[in-house]
Write a protein that binds this DNA or RNA. Structure first.
Lengths: 332, 332
DNA sequence: GGAGGGTTTGGAATCGATTCCAAATTGAAG
DNA sequence: CTTCAATTTGGAATCGATTCCAAACCCTCC
């Protein structure tokens, strides 16, 4: 049995297609009698309006798409929950797709916005250069969350990564650390900002940075172990290590512990993101909490305005407050 | 500037819409001269075919949607990678959306298949009852991965959860355990199958199960701690605990360690899934590895056949082999 | 130079839902 | 019983890309 159309419904209900459409869209200009006939016919034929026909005519889809390198990240999945909940309140469906850092796949997904498959786009961790993000946001409905461009040309929601790294580094120094190392991720802007905040805190305290190690590939548990091993193989050990996220910090702690040293007594370790891994770690990690859910909500609100108000193009960046969460991995 | 249409392209290129469409779709029946004019016009107008118009005419979208309660699960995100890679090879875009276990939201997303917003659906952890899944699969392109219905009415790819739980429990017994407890999740079919495998292994060894504790809400780290605490508060301690996944097992290990007991010497612990958390845990977890990526690939292949071959409706279940990964949390 | 083959092209019809306009119906008021 | 306004209805036009059919075109060969 083929799909029923609005024509079929009109025929079985004994009314015109106009009336069927009016019932479907809750127009008040329909008599009670027609409404019942149409509703009955719809149920009888198991009719659903075809999305492509409706989208074509209405020129919108009520769908948005979010893109991230990777869906595992706890911050991103939480932020996407925020996007999704806000979207649902306004009748939008939100979908997400991983790009795996593949530029070609990212382009293919961004094309879904260009060709009208979705009404808006949320970028969590773009692979394309900042300039392209901004060019895209210039003419289409795009917002950024977490990983945002350096300029004010587009719109983005994030925490102040530089300040957060500065805060947590200052905490490390306050607990007595003097030789501080960092395990970071320079491929992302947020990673570079965190590096910068780290350096600034050291400079302010009159200290000079110890070893700065940066990952090339995945910024994960094994990378954390690998880099820490390299760190421990040198003669002068650091007394504190700042890691760009909790997972890497967990790898770091693990490698230190396996080497027979103690955290935080011999070496303090700090993470970033306050993901569940921060609590799974032994000792539990001092870290930075990001208001990810709220960031997602805010991003959708801005996207909605962009999609619905003609000519609205919000620019600039919103930085939500982060929180320093102190746990046993850094207590003196 | 409004969106350019195929008409606009035809006008600026000085050809007909038919020719433009032929160029767009790579038809050979176009002269080199026309092709160039059209390509130039397309570039000049920055033209992209509108998805809804194309989808309407072609009666397919080249998009599929995957649904899961939750995107964090490492097995699901890996399986979805498999789906996505296989889909990309066939020119399909694959998207995913979390349902949060909310029936209404799930229905809204399933409607995207019903109304032709996508061509196929991959279900990872449905919230709707099995019967509805099967009714849906009966008439539309749906496949299940990981969490599959009990009957052969629909199609699904999974491991044999019962057998896997049986295998790992037998391993626990082989390393000397005699009083075995379990932390499980009965809300999911896979959870019940794992429970059944666990019980069977005990029965085969002539043992009777110790405490069987089941979570109500989230099956996460904190739930693992909470349940383990309850377990440790009784007078007769178990000498091995089988947990329904690695995260819960990590919580379990943590609670045991915090209580001053040792894993595996006092109590052995086994997990499930072989996620990165199994390696982050101290000691590292004995667990079951699922070939998640391969499961996803296979599921897409079947979905593709269902979507493209008229009348094809593959039924039944495919169980891929799992692997028992033995680590320090259970070594004698 | 013309007939016959293949190649290329134009343009109308189509997909299915929405919307606008005019026509039909209803109801109330006189 | 008319008249007028308000309500309800039918149906054609529309959205933009694809596809089919017929017409136009180009060669080649006799």
């Amino acid at each position: 049995m083929a799909r029923a159309t609005v024509q079929d419904v009109a025929r079985t209900a004994g009314v015109s297609v106009g009336t069927v459409s009016r019932v479907l869209n809750g127009s008040p200009a329909v008599s009670e009698a027609s409404k019942e006939k149409v509703t009955a016919a719809i149920r009888q034929l198991n009719y659903r309006p075809l999305a492509s026909a409706r989208d074509l005519r209405r020129d919108r889809t009520m769908r948005i798409l979010a893109l991230a390198k990777n869906l595992n990240s706890p911050v991103i999945s939480e932020a996407f929950r925020g996007v999704g909940d806000a979207a649902a309140l306004s009748g939008y469906v939100s979908l997400i797709a991983p790009t795996s850092g593949d530029l070609e796949r990212e382009q293919q997904l961004v094309d879904m916005l260009r060709n009208g498959s979705v009404d808006g786009l949320v970028l969590f961790s773009p692979t394309m250069p900042d300039q392209e993000v901004e060019a895209l946001a210039e003419q289409l409905s795009v917002v950024q969350v977490c990983e945002i461009t350096g300029s004010e040309a587009a719109f983005g929601v994030s925490i102040d990564d530089r300040q957060a790294a500065f805060d947590i580094t200052r905490h490390l120094i306050a607990t007595g650390a003097r030789r501080l190392a960092m395990l970071g991720f320079q491929a992302a802007r947020s990673g570079r900002l965190r590096e910068s905040g780290f350096r600034q805190a050291l400079a302010d305290a009159g200290l000079s940075p110890g070893q700065m190690l940066f990952v090339q590939g995945d910024f994960d548990f094994h990378a954390g172990r690998r880099l820490t091993k390299k760190l421990l193989d040198t003669d002068t050990l650091p007394d504190a290590i700042f890691c760009g996220n909790d997972i890497v910090a967990a790898g770091c702690v693990r490698e230190i512990t396996d080497a027979g040293l103690r955290v935080p007594d011999d070496i303090a370790v700090a993470g970033f993101d306050d993901s569940v891994q921060a609590e799974m770690c032994v000792p539990e990690l001092t870290t930075i909490r990001q208001p990810a859910y709220e960031m997602g909500r805010l991003a959708f609100d801005s996207l909605l305005e962009r999609m619905t108000v003609p000519g609205a193009h919000r620019r600039g960046r919103v930085f939500l407050p982060h929180e320093l969460v102190i746990r046993d991995s850094t207590r003196a």
